[in-house]
Simulated assay, not measured.
Amino acid sequence: MTKAVLTKENIHLNQKFVDKEEAIRYTGKILVENGYVKQEYVEKMLEREELSSTYMGNHVSIPHGTESGKNEIVETGISVVTIPEGVDFGSGNVAKVLIGIAGKGDEHLEILSKIAIVLSEEANIEKILEAISTEEIISLFDEVN
């Protein structure tokens, strides 16, 4: 039986980080603790950030592992972390929503497409930031099917 891609346990609201490395590690740790990836995947997420920023604009970053990190994925899953005060991702880019992705096989493409649909509306980014419950965020992503 496969796990749900996004569960309440994968969503952490109102966090605070000193830098993007700490924020990415935290986002990855959620995936590790909930059985989606092995610990080594978090290092692959940091490696990806070194190669190319995962900052997407509109205060959103989507940390994910490198191609070589695919072996560290146990199940497809995403984590969502909100950072109301934001964290600097360099070049004046401040991320307030981090969405960690681990996609088994080609499933990351489907996940990215779903995330892109949700985040294409700035109002949805605001809803994520203003959410006071994990259920609010889950229902936003469930609306896209």
Rank of each mutant, 00 (worst) to 15 (best):
M1Q: 14
E50P: 04
I137G: 07
G92M: 12
I115R: 01
G28S: 08
G35C: 05
A131P: 06
E21H: 11
L31T: 12
G92N: 03
T2H: 15
V97A: 09
A123Q: 15
V97E: 07
L51F: 11
A131N: 02
E75I: 05
V144E: 03
V37D: 02
L140C: 03
T2D: 10
A4W: 00
T54G: 09
S139L: 15
S68E: 15
L6Y: 09
Q15M: 11
N145D: 03
T134C: 04
T134V: 06
N145Y: 08
L119G: 00
L129W: 07
I111K: 07
S91A: 15
I138A: 01
S133D: 15
E43D: 08
S68W: 08
L109H: 12
I62S: 02
E143S: 13
V5A: 03
I24E: 06
K104T: 00
K38G: 14
E33T: 15
M1A: 04
S68A: 15
E72Y: 10
V42H: 10
V32H: 07
V97L: 03
G69Q: 14
A131L: 02
P84A: 11
E143I: 01
G105N: 10
K38N: 08
L119D: 03
E107I: 13
T54K: 05
L31M: 09
D19A: 05
I73M: 00
E85P: 09
Y55G: 06
L129F: 10
Y41P: 07
A4Y: 10
V5T: 12
L51R: 07
A102T: 01
N10L: 08
V118G: 09
N14C: 11
S120K: 10
E49D: 02
G57T: 00
M45I: 01
G92C: 09
I73N: 03
K20M: 07
N58V: 07
E75Q: 11
S113P: 01
L6W: 06
K8R: 12
V97N: 04
K8V: 11
L129E: 13
Q39L: 06
A131W: 03
I138G: 02
A102M: 14
A95D: 13
S120Y: 07
S79I: 09
L140Q: 05
N10E: 01
E136M: 03
A95W: 08
V18L: 15
T7N: 06
I128H: 07
S68P: 08
I115T: 00
T134N: 04
G103A: 11
E85T: 14
E126D: 15
V97P: 00
I62K: 00
Y55V: 00
Q15L: 14
S133L: 10
I125D: 01
I111T: 11
E136Q: 13
H12E: 14
E75N: 08
G57K: 03
G57H: 11
S133Y: 14
P84I: 05
A23E: 02
E136W: 14
I128T: 04
E136D: 12
Q15A: 03
V32I: 10
I117Q: 12
